[in-house]
């Protein structure tokens, strides 16, 4: 069943008075629980597609449904609420809040969801344990390695129990061991919780693990390959 459905979506930026078409009539469907990589050269529209699916950016035209919400018709305030309750983000640069400890970073999003303190703490501990950081819960981001920070970021992304996890180049700054470890964790979460994972990436390590690979070229879908289908 398609949980993300786009219909001729376009996004045009204004770059110093020059219109730049980042997405051109993209039609796409993503099924529930898919582990999908969006690939393509720089400027192909990967991050823009991820941003519009995540409600971070608005569309210029077209229709986009994510879950049961028509993203293209939502106000900025509705989008904030939508992101909070439906999307988990993992960024390339980890983007943890530097003044908070690992466990507080994970708890933070649940605080925004008004989850009780006890539940917040319990769930955050569990998530950090599942990403192998149970001994580092009270460390601040600066006291963690890049791989550890990204694992905290994954735990944070999952803390709100989102339907979709959008990861923008999550392994770009990680060494091989850290990247493989992170992908193991995300694969496990995908298997166990049936969350839909969408990656925007250049990284072949991610592409190899993805069960579906969508290639964008000049803002349009070039190829769409489901690995199971090709053996």
């Amino acid at each position: 069943m398609a949980v993300i459905m786009s219909e001729k979506i376009c996004k045009t930026y204004n770059d110093g008075g020059v219109p730049v078409k980042a997405l051109k009539d993209v039609d796409m469907e993503i099924e529930d629980g898919e582990f999908t990589a969006i690939v393509g050269p720089s400027g192909s529209g990967k991050t823009t597609l991820l941003n519009v699916i995540g409600g971070l950016d608005t569309l210029t035209s077209g229709k986009l449904r994510v879950g049961d919400k028509e993203i293209s018709e939502m106000t900025p305030n509705d989008l904030i609420e939508f992101r909070l309750n439906n999307i988990g983000f993992v960024f390339q640069a980890y983007n943890l809040i530097p003044v908070l400890t690992a466990i507080e970073n994970v708890e933070f999003i649940m605080l925004l969801q008004k989850v009780s303190k006890e539940e917040r703490r319990g769930r955050a501990r569990e998530l950090l344990k599942s990403v192998g950081l149970e001994d580092m819960i009270n460390r601040k981001p600066i006291e963690l390695s890049g791989g550890q920070q990204q694992r905290v970021a994954v735990a944070r992304a999952l803390a709100s129990r989102p339907r979709f996890v959008l990861a923008d180049e999550p392994t770009a700054n990680l060494d091989t061991a850290s990247a493989e470890n992170l992908l193991d964790i995300m694969e496990r979460m995908n298997d166990e919780h049936k969350m839909t994972f969408i990656f925007s990436t250049h990284d072949q390590r991610v592409v190899r693990r993805a069960r579906r690979v969508i290639t964008l070229k000049d803002g349009q879908v070039d190829t769409d390959e489901r690995k199971g289908e090709n053996g």
Binding site: G54, L56, N77, I80, R83, L84, F89, N95, L112
Partner: peptide, 16 residues
């Protein structure tokens, strides 16, 4: 700014 962008992305509303 980046950090504020992150919390906005995560769903922290304007009032907060």
């Amino acid at each position: 700014i980046r950090e504020l962008g992150v919390v906005l992305s995560l769903g922290m509303n304007h009032f907060r």
